[in-house]
């Protein structure tokens, strides 16, 4: 007699949990939407969504909040994936928000469009009447996110109230909202950075080349390597050098730093991530360094 143990390994477990959440939202909401940045987490999200509804197409559109400061290879990658999945792409443009006077561009060497995205995002939610937005945030990324629910309720101003979150029990998600309110949904809440990489390797998920070590002209700021690009104003002391780097997170070019790395394959990345002593946001995100509670403050305003 064969003995079946009925055990799932951790990646199967995390995958099943995410698929359950995608389906639950598709069943209960009228206008869901998947936020896609081209980053590894949102690429995994897209892959999970495709799995959840196979053999049908995604029952919701994909939205990119475009700061206008993206890595060109990431944009090309986005378009290719969307086409392969025959998905509908909605682009919400920060440039358009600036042109229409909804937000004012920051100036100076530290100018970033990171915070401006919130207005663009909330405007797009209103325009398209989205009632549920899937995001690829993970609880291990940041301490405010460690406290956020899988279904994160937003009021009609798009705001998050960390002190007044709905209790979330078992896998019974409360998706009831009133008109104008919405839910941010985080199906990969329980994944760690290492889980993401192990899953990408296991599933053969394609990712943009900026995640692998490559030579790039960069300059040092606040202990991070920022890419030299037209979107960043350098000071005189900030000298451009060529370094072999890779990105641990991919966001706006003006505030995403690269790390020096020799990892050219997924196996090498997994090895590097397993041994790292610095969190991915600590290593690479200028936007989180504003203050101890920078993420919490942005999230309260309606940020991702």
């Amino acid at each position: 007699m064969s003995i079946t143990t009925y055990e799932l390994n951790h990646l199967d477990h995390l995958e099943a949990e995410a698929i359950h959440i995608f389906r639950e939202v598709a069943a209960e909401f009228e206008h869901p939407c998947l936020m896609f940045s081209g980053g590894k987490d949102s690429i995994v999200m897209l892959h999970l969504a495709a799995k959840a509804f196979w053999p049908a197409r995604l029952p919701f559109p994909v939205m990119h909040v475009d700061t206008g400061h993206n890595f060109p290879e990431v944009l090309a990658f986005r378009d290719q994936r969307v086409q392969e999945l025959e998905a509908r792409l909605v682009i919400a443009s920060v440039q358009k928000s600036i042109d229409e006077g909804r937000v004012v561009e920051e100036t100076g060497p530290r100018a970033s469009r990171n915070r401006l995205q919130t207005t663009t995002l909330l405007d797009a939610i209103e325009e398209h009447r989205f009632d549920a937005l899937f995001g690829g945030a993970r609880r291990d990324e940041e301490k405010a996110r460690a406290k956020e629910r899988v279904y994160s309720f937003r009021d009609d101003f798009g705001q998050w109230d960390p002190k007044n979150q709905r209790p979330e029990l078992w896998s019974l998600y409360n998706g009831r909202i009133r008109q104008g309110e919405h839910i941010r949904v985080f199906p990969i809440s329980n994944w760690t950075e290492l889980d993401i990489w192990q899953y990408i390797a296991r599933e053969n998920v394609e990712i943009p080349h900026v995640y692998f070590a490559h030579e790039r002209p960069v300059f040092s700021r606040d202990g991070m390597w920022l890419a030299d690009s037209e979107f960043v104003t350098r000071t005189e002391e900030e000298v451009v050098v060529t370094r072999k780097v890779r990105y641990r997170t991919v966001g706006d070019m003006s505030c995403t730093g690269a790390v020096e790395s020799e990892a050219e394959t997924l196996e090498q990345i997994i090895e590097e991530v397993s041994a790292t002593r610095i969190t991915e946001r600590g290593a690479t995100r200028a936007d989180d360094r504003v203050s101890e509670a920078a993420m919490e403050d942005r999230k309260k305003e309606g940020y991702f």
Binding site: H10, R139, D140, E142, K143, A144, R145, A146, K147, P162, K163, Q165, S189, N190, T192, L194, D195, E292, A293, E296, D297
Partner: peptide, 28 residues
């Protein structure tokens, strides 16, 4: 490490459930 919210740090108390992740070679 676990008290991530501004209010928790200010008041020195845990208000909410915090999720933490770690792994050994055997389990996550």
């Amino acid at each position: 490490l676990t008290d991530g919210l501004r209010a928790e740090r200010e008041q020195g108390i845990t208000i909410d459930v915090a999720y933490r992740y770690f792994a050994t070679p055997k389990r996550k």
